[in-house]
């Protein structure tokens, strides 16, 4: 009660997501051809631990809740994770997108939801081509169900968390046509 999004909000998210996907698809070649910063080393597809560290950062990966680092005022991407920049995700093949999605969903099955995880899940969903392969289909359903479980257990009305979970459930159910999982107002 009070956590479920309105139909209007859900429709807006689907429309915005669709526009983001169109822009991504239109400019993918440009972003693929851009040089990455020398510190961005994308792991091999089969390197599960490498991808978790890459996306979530060593801090979240190791479960260290350290807020600030006084000795270094700049952003240390190794510690906080690399964000899903277009220049990074445009280089990922469909197979890699699906594989990394699987790694992160498996992580989320056991760990807390974080903003870093939310951004990557959203970005990977934006890269996932339709029609879905059977394995991607089952993966994203698993993701939406996990989001629902976490939402049910959330007692503190953490608005950012609930919103992020609602967004993922909404995109899986309404953009990727898994209507039985949708929040019905």
């Amino acid at each position: 009660e009070g956590y479920s999004p309105t139909l209007k909000w859900q429709q807006q998210q689907v429309a915005d997501f669709s526009a983001v996907r169109q822009s991504l698809s239109k400019h993918r070649n440009y972003w693929q051809s851009q040089n990455l910063d020398s510190n961005v080393i994308m792991p091999q597809s089969e390197d599960e631990e490498g991808w978790k560290k890459f996306c979530l950062g060593e801090r979240v990966y190791s479960g260290i809740d350290e807020q600030s680092d006084n000795e270094n005022l700049g952003i240390n991407y190794i510690k906080v994770g690399f964000p899903p920049l277009l220049s990074i995700v445009s280089r990922m093949s469909q197979a890699t997108v699906t594989t990394v999605l699987e790694y992160l969903i498996s992580w989320f099955g056991e760990k807390k939801f974080t903003p870093e995880l939310g951004r990557w899940l959203y970005a990977l969903l934006a890269c996932l081509e339709k029609p879905l392969l059977p394995e991607a289909h089952s993966l994203i359903r698993q993701l939406a169900r996990r989001c629902s479980e976490v939402r049910v257990l959330e007692e503190n009305k953490n608005e950012e968390l609930i919103s992020a979970l609602n967004l993922i459930i909404c995109l899986v159910s309404r953009y990727f046509d898994q209507r039985d999982l949708a929040d019905e107002p």
Binding site: E1, G2, Y3, P5, W9, Q12, Q13, D16, F17, A19, V20, S23, L24, K26, H27, Y30, W31, Q34, P83, P84, L85, L86, S87, V89, G118, R119, Y122, A123, A126, K157, E159, E160, I162, S163, A164, N166, L167
Partner: peptide, 27 residues
């Protein structure tokens, strides 16, 4: 116009996610 300027921003996906998350308010 907007779409074009967004296309040259490497952090479009991050901004789109953050905007979507900020748009929901619990009842």
């Amino acid at each position: 116009q907007n779409e074009d300027s967004d296309a040259w921003d490497d952090s479009v996906l991050i901004k789109a996610y953050d905007k979507a998350v900020a748009s929901f308010k619990t009842a």
